[in-house]
Design a protein around this nucleic acid. Structure first.
Length: 583
RNA sequence: CGCGGGGUAGAGCAGUUGGCAGCUCGCCAGGCCCAUAACCUGGAGGUCGUAGGUUCAAGUCCUACCCCCGCAACCA
């Protein structure tokens, strides 16, 4: 990097060979902004969708919820005021049908199921801060307030119509949206309902340009980019008004339309508002001001239409007549970002109850420590992409990444330290930031021959950036395999310095090497804490520290500062972190 | 013209604005002996779905085409 002798200034561009251009591009310095952590401290509000409770949680909803948990934990770790919301959608026809099937009273059924969901998340160690149920009073109040605001903006109108309604899409279909057999192309085997009634509509179409403008101005409003493209073309091609109510006599659930008991608010208009009702909209203005707008709505790729287009349109409308929804400059307080993750198949097959491959997360947590599953979710599958939930791959990841790379490194580092330094963390000068390794640490040409604490700082910066952009997968990759300090590199460090030989010649240098390994592992433990909280705590305990006391300091800058592991402190006897499988 | 995803090493995947085709696992050969038969190094293995086009330069941009996956219900 420092060697710029091959930069032949003034050379005509056309004469540049491939190598030259390649090297020049390698010179591009990544500028990473870093702030003192006391400035970084801010609020973070993240949500999952509210789940239909026509059955217990499965691996799919678990994936979404765990992702939100990882992001919430990553912000808490850094001292951000964090609010993580999940919950249940109880005003839907699907819940009603499931209740009927079970033969239970609807309220009894909803109560039981909501408890199952909440308890499942608790048992899996999900750190949600609130659990919203759309049957709750606070939600009804929020919906009422929201409806009235939208109504005052003139965006709710009544219409009598006769139209094709697709139960699968929960949406109306215009003639142009039907396939050649006059059926819904998404649900061709499902009869369209010819619906004839008088309902309320939300004038979404009035916000078409504003939504497109939003996509244009805030390019990261929808992530990943491919979803933004998808939703943009949907809005461009026609962003029709949404039906937002049903005749009360035809549905057995739902919140009554304010001022019109003959109609019930229908599905999405009601459900989306949960993100506001949970933080006090309609019940606690101060609380609402504290948390809204949400920083991130985490959703599955199937519901981006509602979250990325309908929801902002609804807020734009309501904001016109509700100061609580306005920024200081009068613009609507929209959520900052919507991230759509992909779906996964189970062993190559679509997840399906009839195939019988639906996985209960609690049963899975018996097969593997749940931290391992969490790791697999984000290491194996690029976040935002589709993937496959595959047992063989879990075992592979476990053996290779967890046992061999991480677990073994911890074990060998602790064992050597104990053996050579009287069961203690080696004593060395922790202010030494850089030292000769003796050979090349990086296998790449031009790789470094020194250990440099700066590499750990750089890794921290990368990891934080990746967590910030919800790229949990990239954070893990950087920790395990990155160009800077990484677990791979730490293992290589052992080979290059050979502390097991070095101890006979140069105990001081050996102390430096082993301290570096242990202290790096302490840092890694905190980097992976959002994804593997239990493993993280285990590592810190094995290093002779109390994870709780460290985190209770709630001082992120302190926690990641090099030298946190005290030289000379006791090192307990190590335990195998990830026992080999099948033994 | 229904919508979306995808075709890159044996398997699974990355490849930002075109600039030496990469990662993990597996395989082969060495090294090491602190450690969980773990760790490190080297190697083999590619017509980047096909055919055209733009360009000094295409996995990447353009055009056409082929193939695979998902789209009854359950369902993130």
């Amino acid at each position: 990097m420092a060697d710029s002798s091959y930069r032949t200034i003034g050379y005509p561009l056309s004469a540049l060979d491939r190598l030259w251009r390649y090297r020049l591009s390698a010179l591009t310095v990544k500028v990473v902004l870093s702030y003192p952590s006391y400035i970084m401290s801010q609020k973070y509000y993240v949500t999952t969708p509210i789940y239909y409770i026509n059955d217990k949680p499965h691996i799919g909803s678990t994936y979404t919820t765990v992702a939100a948990d990882v992001l919430a934990r990553s912000h808490r770790l850094r001292g951000d005021k964090t609010f993580f919301l999940t919950g249940t959608d109880e005003n839907s026809q699907k819940s009603m049908e499931a209740a009927e099937k079970s033969g239970k009273d609807i309220n009894v059924y909803l109560e039981e199921m909501a408890i199952i969901w909440e308890n499942t998340w608790k048992e899996l160690g999900i750190t949600f801060d609130d659990f919203i149920r759309t049957s709750e009073e606070r939600h009804h109040k929020a919906v009422n307030r929201f409806w009235k605001a939208v109504e005052a903006s003139g965006d709710i109108y009544k219409d009598t119509y006769e139209r094709h309604y697709c139960v699968g899409c929960e949406d109306f279909k215009t003639d142009s949206e039907l396939n050649e057999d006059d059926r819904c192309p998404l649900h061709p085997n499902k009869d369209l309902e010819l619906v004839q009634e008088e309902n309320y509509f939300f004038k979404a179409s009035a916000y078409k340009d504003d939504i497109l403008q939003l996509f244009h101005k805030q390019q990261d409003f929808v992530q990943p980019v491919k979803r933004l493209n998808e939703i943009r073309s949907y809005v461009k091609d026609g962003f029709a008004d949404f039906s937002i109510s049903r005749e009360a006599k035809k549905v057995s659930c739902g919140i009554p339309v304010p001022g019109d008991d003959s109609q019930r608010i229908y599905v999405w208009f009601d459900a989306l508002i949960n993100y506001m009702s949970a933080v006090g909209y309609g019940t606690d203005d101060e609380l609402f001001k504290k948390w809204w707008p949400a920083n991130l709505h985490l959703v599955g790729k199937d519901i981006i239409k509602f979250h990325c287009a309908l929801w902002p349109a609804m807020i734009m409308s309501a904001a016109k007549n509700d100061p609580l929804l306005q920024n200081e400059d009068g613009t609507p307080k929209l959520p900052e970002q919507i991230f759509a993750h992909g779906f996964f198949t189970i062993e190559g097959q679509k997840m399906s109850k009839s195939i019988g491959n639906v996985i209960d997360p609690l049963e899975l947590a018996v097969e593997y420590p749940f931290d391992v599953i969490r790791y697999f979710f984000f290491r194996e599958i690029g976040f935002g992409n589709d993937g496959d939930f595959n047992r063989a791959r879990i075992a592979e990841r476990y053996q290779s990444d967890l046992a061999n790379t991480l677990g073994n490194l911890l074990n060998r580092a602790i064992n050597m330290s104990r053996k050579y330094f009287d069961n203690r963390v080696p004593t060395c000068d922790t202010s030494v930031k850089t030292w000769d390794v003796g050979s090349l640490l990086s296998r790449k040409e031009g790789g470094r021959a020194t250990w440099d604490v700066e590499m750990v700082d750089t890794l921290w910066q990368q990891v934080e950036e990746y967590y910030d952009s919800a790229r949990i997968d990239l954070a893990l990759e950087a920790i395990w395999n990155g160009e800077n300090a990484s677990l791979i590199l730490a293992n290589r460090l052992v080979e290059e310095t050979q502390p097991f030989k070095l101890i006979k010649e140069d105990p001081e240098k050996t102390a430096l090497v082993l301290y570096t390994l242990l202290e790096f592992l302490r840092n890694v433990a905190w980097m992976i804490e959002p994804v593997m909280p239990n493993i993280s705590a285990d590592i810190i305990k094995q290093l002779g520290q109390d994870p709780k006391s460290e985190i209770s300091q709630n001082n992120f800058a302190n926690l990641k500062k090099w030298g946190g592991l005290e030289p000379g402190s006791d090192l307990p006897e190590p335990k195998i972190l990830f026992p080999r499988l099948g033994e």
